[in-house]
């Protein structure tokens, strides 16, 4: 199976993924990125209500496979 890398940016701080995860294909990698973004938002929600989360997915050659962005804002 091909390996995909998921670089995470949380409120402007980027953590590059040095290990990657083996997944079936690019479509599965994008779906996994969506799930991971939602899970991170859930974990972070009660620490800080406003979040900007970006996961950039790249393949082993470094080519961009997709980007998932999630912004949580409270309009009071």
């Amino acid at each position: 199976m091909p390996r995909f890398f998921f670089d995470t940016t949380l409120n402007n701080v980027t953590e590059p993924d040095r290990e990657g995860v083996e997944l079936h294909d690019a479509k599965t990698a994008r779906q996994e990125a969506v799930r991971a973004t939602a899970e991170m938002a859930k974990d972070l929600a009660h620490r800080s209500p406003e979040q900007d989360i970006t996961i950039q997915v790249r393949d082993e050659a470094g080519e961009r496979v997709g980007t998932v962005r999630l912004t949580l804002r409270i309009d009071a």
């Binding site: 998921f6 995470t8 953590e15 993924d17 040095r18 290990e19 990657g20 995860v21 997944l23 996994e32 990125a33 799930r35 991971a36 899970e39 991170m40 996961i55």
Partner: peptide
């Protein structure tokens, strides 16, 4: 494996991988 760990913890493999790091 991370995928089994994901199935045991109800998380995505990507989030498990990130958390392990």
């Amino acid at each position: 494996t991370q995928s089994e760990l994901a199935d045991a913890t109800g998380l995505s493999t990507v989030h498990v991988n990130r958390t392990m790091q």
